Simulated scan of single mutants.
Amino acid sequence: MSNEPPAPGPPPEDDPFRKRPQEPPGAPGSPGSPGSSEGGGAPPPPPPGGAGPYPGGPYGGEPPGGGGPYGGGPYGGDPYGGGPYGGGPYGYGGTDPLGGMPPLADTAKRVLARIVDWLVIAVPLALIGIPFGVYSRVSDESANLGDVWASGSGGGQWTFQLLSMLAYVAYDTLMTAKWNGQTLGKRMTGIRVAMLNDGSVPPTSAALMRALVLWLPALICCACLWPLLLLVLILVDKPYKQGLHDKAARTVVVSAAR
């Protein structure tokens, strides 16, 4: 008999939001299950008819309440009622990547969070822009950041335009990747950005891609049209309510409540 200690298991996950597979309480081999040696004694004999403790299989599948981290809790098992890819409202086949995650964020909360984030950056930039002479064209009713970029008039305005792009992209990237998927606006409204495949906090690369698609078109040429287009796509997209920035980064926005 070897006296060597058993090999250590894998290190625990650092990401508190990553979905972890769980064995349902009634599954064979789980602690306290009818077929487990833990919990003492042999498994009870099945009732007449061959059914297990819970109808539907030798062990009845799962006990009431489901087996996921939200099963039987405030989200009622699978947050999408079987999931759009698991026999849910959209009727596709396969497995729901969002199974076990909180519900998708409310669209109104997403809009409010975006307005807050825009103000967090726009107000300081408005003060910084004074020495760059960005308000010298205020008399032109059609003037906006996109016009300044397109016209190329004034080195100070070019510099301020580049500074604005850097500020918006860096803010969204760093906050999303380093603060549990939340900007200030998202934290205020109780929502967060999550990777579609496993619910984890987006890495820096995904957060950067999302920020570039989210902010650059609006800052360069489409200050009004681009945010409106993203909102329309979020409203009509099924089943994950993804804008183009979410699709590019493969992310979703979900409730941050745990």
Rank of each mutant, 00 (worst) to 15 (best):
Y240F: 10
W149C: 06
W118M: 15
I128K: 08
P24D: 09
S200I: 04
L235K: 15
P97D: 10
G67A: 09
G152P: 00
D172N: 11
T173M: 13
A108M: 11
G60L: 04
A7N: 12
W158L: 08
A113G: 14
E38N: 07
L127N: 11
D117L: 07
G156R: 14
P239N: 09
I128P: 02
G60I: 01
K109F: 03
S255W: 02
R258Y: 10
P239S: 11
G73P: 00
S255M: 03
P46D: 08
D117P: 06
P11D: 09
G199V: 01
D198V: 08
E141T: 13
L163S: 03
P69C: 13
T251K: 04
L216S: 12
E141A: 14
Y90S: 01
A218Q: 03
T183F: 07
C224E: 06
V120S: 11
T95A: 14
P102Q: 08
D140H: 15
G86I: 08
W215V: 00
E4Q: 15
P31L: 11
A256Y: 05
P97M: 10
P58W: 07
V138D: 05
G72S: 08
A211N: 04
V148A: 12
V252K: 12
A150M: 09
V252M: 10
M1Q: 13
Q22W: 03
Y54Q: 04
G133C: 10
L235D: 03
V201H: 02
A223G: 06
N144C: 13
G133K: 12
P21N: 04
A42Q: 09
S37N: 12
G57A: 12
Y135P: 01
S205F: 08
Y90V: 00
I220G: 01
L244A: 12
T204K: 10
R110W: 00
A126K: 06
G243Q: 03
